[in-house]
């Protein structure tokens, strides 16, 4: 098994393109190493992207934030301006695993692991994040909701990898939140995850919203109906119930060791509502 740690995007692309699909990108490694240990994957080549400057930086870009794909959750948490602008995204990234895992796990890895239960993905989708991909034919932007197609299946082309994410500018009176359900307080994979981003006007009426649900379908969902259910409202009880109902209606979960279908559907409604309330509260106070 080869290990390479290129220092440029082009270098990484060249290695990945030459490997004919038998390569894996290493960011934080918190999923990849576990899968290698369990013989789930046995790549010929590992391309460590952490020595590439673009994957490790958090920078402002046109009023928004660009986050390198290999920035760790712990680093995001310590980035005060980012946390102020996108608390939901940072919270979600910080729900991935333990403190120790936080020291390694990255947004890029969390997305490209291809799990519908990834915590940071619903938050990124609710935030309207766009992934920047680099490949043999150059770079392209792809909304995060279009990156993952199903469990372990990505829209990435041969030789492509995720370099960074762009979070859009934050208008005033807007905020996001992410909640997940696990049976314990820590250390579990989300049974349901819900990300909500909201903007309100001066009167407290919701003018824009995005709602995303994780672990309730083969891929993380962007639920337009749930957003529609609260736009124009002040998130009164009726709007909350419409939101919960729309969230429940969007779910297509499986029964598995982590939760039953019925449970996931019920809890998706609850979490969407609770996350919306937190986002609303934050938006109002900005």
């Amino acid at each position: 098994m080869r290990y390479e740690a290129p220092e440029s995007v082009q270098g990484a692309v060249a290695l990945l393109a030459a490997a004919n699909g038998d390569a894996r990108v290493l960011a934080g490694g918190t999923d990849l190493l576990v899968q290698m240990r369990a013989d789930v994957v046995e790549p010929e080549l590992i391309v460590d992207i952490k020595r590439i400057r673009e994957t490790r930086a958090v920078t402002q870009e046109n009023g928004g934030w660009r986050i390198g794909a290999a920035v760790t959750g712990a680093e995001l948490k310590e980035h005060a301006p980012l946390k102020q602008a996108w608390p939901g995204v940072v919270e979600a990234a910080n729900l991935i695993g333990s403190t120790q895992v936080q020291g390694r796990a990255t947004l890029g890895g969390n997305l490209c692991n291809g799990s519908p239960a990834a915590d940071s993905v619903p938050a990124l989708i609710a935030a309207g994040a766009v992934a920047k991909l680099a490949g043999p034919h150059g770079q392209r932007d792809l909304p995060v909701e279009d990156v993952m197609l199903g469990p372990r299946t990505l829209a990435l082309r041969p030789g492509e990898f995720v370099v960074s994410f762009l979070l859009p500018p934050r208008p005033p009176r807007s905020a996001d939140a992410y909640l997940r359900f696990i049976p314990r307080t820590e250390m579990d994979i989300a049974v349901v995850g819900a990300g909500v981003s909201i903007a309100v006007d001066g009167a407290g009426t919701i003018t824009a919203a995005r709602v995303s649900l994780g672990a309730v379908a083969p891929r993380v969902l962007l639920v337009a109906e749930a957003a529609q259910a609260i736009i124009g409202s002040r998130l009164d009880d009726a709007a909350q119930e419409r939101l919960a109902a729309a969230a429940r209606a969007a779910c297509r979960p499986i029964d598995d060791k982590r939760g039953t279908t019925e449970f996931r559907v019920d809890v998706a409604g609850v979490l969407a509502r609770r996350a919306a309330l937190i986002a609303m509260d934050r938006a109002r106070t900005r």
């Binding site: 934080g28 895992v101 020291g103």
Partner: peptide, 10 residues
């Protein structure tokens, strides 16, 4: 200086 699990680092 960053806390990690050494089993998850190559």
């Amino acid at each position: 200086g960053r806390l990690v699990c050494s089993c998850l680092v190559l």
